[in-house]
Design a protein around this nucleic acid. Sequence first.
DNA 1: ACCATCAGAATGAGGGCTCATTCATTTCAC
DNA 2: GTGAAATGAATGAGCCCTCATTCTGATGGT
Lengths: 193, 193
Amino acid sequence: MKSADKHRKIIRAATKVFAKKGFFNARISDIAKEAKVADGTIYLYFKNKFDILISVFEQEIGKLIENILLLLENETDPSAQLEIFIQRHLEEMKKNRNLAEVIHIELRQTNKLIRDYRKNKFSEYLDIIAKIILQGQNEGKFRQDINPDIAKLMLFGTLDEISRLWGPGSEEKVTVEDISRQITAIFKHGMLH
Amino acid sequence: MKSADKHRKIIRAATKVFAKKGFFNARISDIAKEAKVADGTIYLYFKNKFDILISVFEQEIGKLIENILLLLENETDPSAQLEIFIQRHLEEMKKNRNLAEVIHIELRQTNKLIRDYRKNKFSEYLDIIAKIILQGQNEGKFRQDINPDIAKLMLFGTLDEISRLWGPGSEEKVTVEDISRQITAIFKHGMLH
DNA sequence: ACCATCAGAATGAGGGCTCATTCATTTCAC
DNA sequence: GTGAAATGAATGAGCCCTCATTCTGATGGT
């Protein structure tokens, strides 16, 4: 039986290998070895190397989207929702470094190839932010002159860059809470006195 | 004579090719063809393919640093300096898409390889931001509880993500001025009313 | 002015290696 | 016993870099 279990096992292995070596330096045999299957087996579950990357991303970001949406349900204030989003994203990136690396490096490296795909799953993630901001504007809590589509990119860019703090070769002891607080503060109130 | 001219020519060609295809998909022969030299000639000027990337990055970001520092000299107010930085960065990325792509993709893709280098040249760029913020704090204009090293990452992350708006496959008509104004506003005053 | 000599710049064909992918064979589940 | 699943050795396409060779133009001897 082609098991969903094995499918997952390969994805998990691939995430690890991609994170460690980058897509282009990752060998199929590395992934196979990590997943404890034969090279050929991978091709029973995936079309090609690139298809593995897509699947990794879909799987991981999908889980994150679900998780965040669930958390947001219990909170109606857009300002608080923003804080939740920020904290949850950073938490996940700190915990799941492999995902952070894959988003950080691979999402960009393969930008040109992945674009169509990105239009689906990744923008779904970004749109969570945009919706929160729009909601805030409708409730008169956020400034009207902000373009949610710009702001969502600002926030994601911020988070993505910040999450490198927990990447390899960083001795940072900064906590997610501290950073979340700071980012949230700047986004809400700005840097000026 | 090994001419500096040819060196530049190869760098220019490489920038173009890297931007278009990404580092790993760029062929030495592509670069050679674009530069109108023989494949072998490239190895008279560069150690290897990766060395070309380093040089491209060094060259381009170096010019940008010089240029921005010059502009900042004429302005003492940190708040205005921030605005200048933001606008100049985005202007450059819009004008010089090749550089934008190289920063965007390669800086990340080759993160692991380039790290030593990054500690030098790239952080020099980031430190311009940090210094402005510190200055603002010393003058009592920016909030004291902001960590300049976090804020610099926020701003760079923001700008880097935003500059994708002018990347290939975007029909955006947004102007640099509009976006600069918006980003500056959020950074200074935040999103709340 | 002319040519011989030469240093070193430029060339580009192809060696040699690295993988992504395939497929003949084996193993396994029922 | 049969067909699906798994295997991993074999394949071959692709490309970085080398190096034997050619080209260029500067120098100096006559």
